[in-house]
Amino acid sequence: MVQKDILDRLRDIIARTGRDVIDVKNIGEKDTIASLGIDSLSMLDFLYDVQQEFRIEFDPQELVAVKTLGELAAFVEKRIAA
């Protein structure tokens, strides 16, 4: 799976997590996850969906260094390949 597919699927998850609040079409890979305005509970929803969508497991603490959507896509890509 290439990073572009991963990014599209991440946008779908964000759309589900953020319900109608977040306009996913305008989210670029350089946008930070923090800027999406997802609260703690929705972030848990988001992490669950990421783990299930890509069938990967990770310690959520590993995401501390991941700031942007592009970095998250790269992280997921590495995990899928591992």
Partner: peptide
């Protein structure tokens, strides 16, 4: 949250 924390 407790359930999601456990699952994640």
């Amino acid at each position: 949250a407790i359930a999601l924390l456990h699952l994640v």
